[in-house]
Simulated assay, not measured.
Amino acid sequence: MSETAVLALDWGTTRLRAFRMAEDGSVLERRDAPAGIRAIDDGDFEDAFHTIIGDWLPPAGADAPLIILGGMIGSRQGWFEAPYIPCPADPESLADHAIAARTESGHALWIAPGLSLSQDGRADVMRGEELQIFGALAQLGPGRHLLCLPGTHSKWAWLEDGIIKDFRTYMTGELFDVLRRHSILGATIEHAVWSDAGFEKGLAAVRSDAGLLAHLFTVRAGALLETLPVDETGSFLSGLLIGSEVASAVRDLAPGSEVCIIGNPDLTDLCTRAVTQHGIRCRQLGEYTGAHGLFRLAEGLRTRR
């Protein structure tokens, strides 16, 4: 393992992604497990850490690669709490505010902070997505970019010359799950069925004058009155929610502008379909940029070791 320079763990709410990286930032080995912080009921993060990458670790006290953890593992519900730092922020400011920690087995760790925003009466936070954004810097280049990271809590962020200037969170994925599982809409949804036609109908409905709240009950009423096929209801709801998110996020963009999307293709493809309907171009940047963001932080941490 002498070629290993950095062990980077992108440790989120539902999954843990671990990367063994070389001195030049290339990924030597990757592991992915459903061991997010919510999955560790007893809070034994130390055990999960050793279970996933124990064979990558040298004996405690030996010459070790730099180990850096990012994402929800640094939250109040995680292993070691790291602060939020205010926007605007760049990779260097994240490295400056990373906290040092040590496992019970004696291995030294760095925990990446999250980002916060408080302006004009609006408060927001992100933890983990900033690593994906900074990991995409090489693909983005200089200038001003709007990025979308779709998911349970979708993030839209403005990046300018490598600095995150502003961002906004949309609870799209969580609201979809709540509505289909815990509301009256769920009784008329075929949960295991996907329909492209239903999704497109949801996107089209968002473009009318009525707002999201006025459209939601259509999921139930349309099924009862047989104007919306039951096998399209879940996809229609998805189109309503994703379409509403996108319409809000791009409302001030000029046609022909570009949105850069980071994430799982299952989600980024749906988001792309919603964005392009506004005459805006999309560029998909891949799913594993968080590893490269953690490596950028690691480079800034070398002087603090």
Score class of each variant (00 low, 15 high):
Arg38Pro: 03
Asp44His: 00
Glu46Asp: 15
Glu46Tyr: 11
Asp47Phe: 07
Ala48Phe: 02
Ala48Tyr: 00
Phe49His: 01
Gly54Asn: 06
Asp55Val: 04
Pro58Phe: 02
Pro59Trp: 00
Gly61Gln: 08
Ala62Tyr: 05
Ala62Val: 03
Asp63Gly: 02
Asp63Phe: 02
Ala64Arg: 14
Pro65Gly: 08
Leu66Lys: 02
Ile67Phe: 11
Gly70Asp: 04
Gly70Gln: 07
Gly70Phe: 11
Gly71Arg: 07
Ser75Leu: 12
Arg76Lys: 13
Arg76Ala: 14
Arg76Gly: 12
Trp79Ile: 02
Glu81Ala: 03
Glu81Asp: 01
Tyr84Cys: 02
Cys87Leu: 09
Pro88Leu: 00
Pro88Phe: 01
Ser93Trp: 04
Ala95Asn: 08
Asp96Tyr: 12
Asp96Arg: 15
Ala100Cys: 13
Glu104Gln: 15
Ser105Lys: 15
Ala108Ile: 07
Trp110Asn: 05
Pro113Asn: 03
Pro113Lys: 03
Leu115Gln: 04
Leu117Asn: 10
Gln119Asp: 14
Gln119Gly: 11
Gln119Ser: 13
Asp120Thr: 00
Asp120Ile: 03
Gly121Asp: 02
Gly121Phe: 00
Gly121Arg: 00
Arg122Cys: 13
Asp124Thr: 07
Val125Glu: 14
Val125Ile: 15
Arg127Gly: 01
Ile133Phe: 14
Leu140Trp: 11
Gly141Cys: 10
Pro142Gln: 06
Gly143Asn: 04
His145Asn: 09
Cys148Tyr: 03
Pro150Trp: 00
Pro150Lys: 01
Leu159Tyr: 09
